[in-house]
Design a protein around this nucleic acid. Structure first.
Lengths: 183, 183
DNA sequence: AGTTGCACTGCAACTAGTTGCATAGATAGG
DNA sequence: CCTATCTATGCAACTAGTTGCAGTGCAACT
């Protein structure tokens, strides 16, 4: 389980509410880890009873009270010790890849349409990451510390999205019959 | 849940035992879907009571009896209908990426070592896939049907492994201080 | 005035997948 | 000879994560 640790990293960068963490999992850090808000709240509860984080309630006007979480010393220590551990090789999981492999047992044209849809979505993400890189990290050579690391993870997202776009293109091109001579 | 469907695809290609399916999930199809043998047996049981598959016991000498599973008509229909469904965009999950992002809060050198280890493993997989491609699909232009699809999925694996290797190289190079002037 | 959407938290029930264990004969290595 | 590994199946207990529901109050749109 790395959600705990993904949250620790996120909180080390900035103290936040559960709501906010859940939203950040849709963005930057969400490139390589995601969670629904329910899961985030559940895990935050456990982390608080394990004394990895503390919360304080911040009243707001015009909005519900919020609980801002921050790391404890124990939390910092846990994060450091987790980082030092080896990470296991995780297997990719892709429904779409399984469908591509099985296309011959169903409607190949439908699979190709789906591949194109995914291709579009990935291209969109890629654009978003590239814009992000230009705006937030205009000069990577000066980066240090956690900003450098953030940039590297962004680079990973870019590389992988590009790979997927290329692959989807290859799949769509290969599975689309070229004969347009009926026109 | 796509394990059911990954199994359907696998069985459509060839009738197999649970044991064999589990092993195949370590290879070709396992590029994009994996499962332990326990999970495979559990799911096969459910699939049999749903009448997607049938099994027959094959006695062997010198070895335990085995149960060979094969698709029913219902199973074929289910597979076709699942293939026609849209697939949702799945999020990548990577412990290592989270560690890279959090490296500044722990031992950066340990993270770099870990990145190199993963780099080596990915390079190995990449080699394996490339060899596989050369041996099994020497002339892709003649491929049709499920062999073509298998090749395309293998291409996906190759593209993604290459992307990871490149990214890990970038990370390791960036996080390794270049100053060797103390020698 | 009414609906939709956002900010914010959380519980309950469920599903998918993992880890650990058990069993058992065959073969291979030290 | 003993131990380890392979083939082959499966249960039990657990953990992680998902889906569905619920509530509050403000702001913006219609």
């Amino acid at each position: 389980m790395a959600l705990e640790h993904a949250i620790l990293v996120s909180l080390a960068e900035r103290a936040s509410t559960g709501y906010d963490l859940a939203r950040r999992f849709d963005k930057s850090i969400g490139q390589f880890w995601t969670a629904t808000h329910q899961q985030v709240y559940k895990v935050l509860g456990r982390m608080e009873s394990d004394d990895w984080v503390v919360s304080r309630v911040v009243p707001q006007d015009g909005r519900p009270d919020k609980k801002v979480y921050d790391l404890t010393d124990t939390g910092h220590a846990e994060l450091a010790s987790w980082i030092a551990e080896p990470a296991d090789f995780e297997a990719a999981r892709s429904d779409l890849a399984v469908k591509i492999r099985g296309a011959a047992y169903g409607d190949t044209a439908a699979v190709v349409a789906e591949v194109r849809r995914h291709r579009a979505r990935r291209a969109e993400r890629l654009e978003y990451y590239l814009t992000n890189e230009k705006d937030e990290f205009p000069d990577p050579s000066v980066l240090r510390g956690h900003r450098l690391n953030q940039w590297l993870v962004l680079r990973g997202g870019i590389t992988l999205e590009r790979g997927l776009v290329d692959w989807y293109d290859e799949v769509a091109a290969t599975l689309t019959p070229l004969d347009k001579d009926e026109a």
